[in-house]
Amino acid sequence: MTSPLIQVSGLKRHYEMGGTLVRALDGVDLEIAAHTFTVVMGPSGSGKSSLLYLLGGLDRPTAGEITVNGERLDQMDENALALFRRKTMGFIFQSFNLVASMSALENVAFPMQFAGVPPSQRNEKSKTLLGQVGLADRSHHKPSELSGGQQQRVAVARALVNDPMLIFADEPTGNLDSQSGVTVMQMLSDLHKSGRTVLVVTHDPRMTRFATNKIFLLDGKVVSEAEYQSATLEPLLGNVGG
């Protein structure tokens, strides 16, 4: 039996906001196997984005252990985390996070600059990836000249430039129309099928169609699907009944 790609135990993320202690994550234990398509579901404030940022090494836990590909992220310094992210992870964000002054091609090539890839290779690889997401003819367009769906496809291409084994997506369809959302979901599914491990944080139920693994979060804790359904549907049913 192979060990899981991601292992989390006793994970807590607490912070202060306006004098109140917020328990974004409050004792999470989970395991994610390699080559899976994991969807993390939960209502707003359930801690799903906090979980993604902690697993991606973009935030520090208050307590607990995070092991990714055999490396303890919670014990790494900032420099080691940056290098680990560069080699292992690709990120897709809800608001795309493209650099406005750069063309689509330059945005895709951007992470490779920090990896020391020579310009000719950067250019070639970025063109190939833009072709794969169907934007070969838009490579010299600035983000402001692209639609939301096209921008998110550029972001998907950017997430792939360093050949990461793990793709993290934070609400990737949140700012897209339904058609563009489906296209992006399909792309993420294709990435999973190509052998990558994909973890998507979303409250878009359509995403579960592609998932091989589902994690449900409520109030900073992992719950079963039944508990999640009950907790999220009960108030609605109660209102109907009342």
Binding site: G56, K87, F110
Partner: peptide, 15 residues
């Protein structure tokens, strides 16, 4: 946000 992105895609503090 651009700084956040740079770090997410692997830029070190030194970069």
């Amino acid at each position: 946000r651009e700084i956040g992105l740079m770090k997410a895609v692997g830029a070190t503090n030194r970069d």
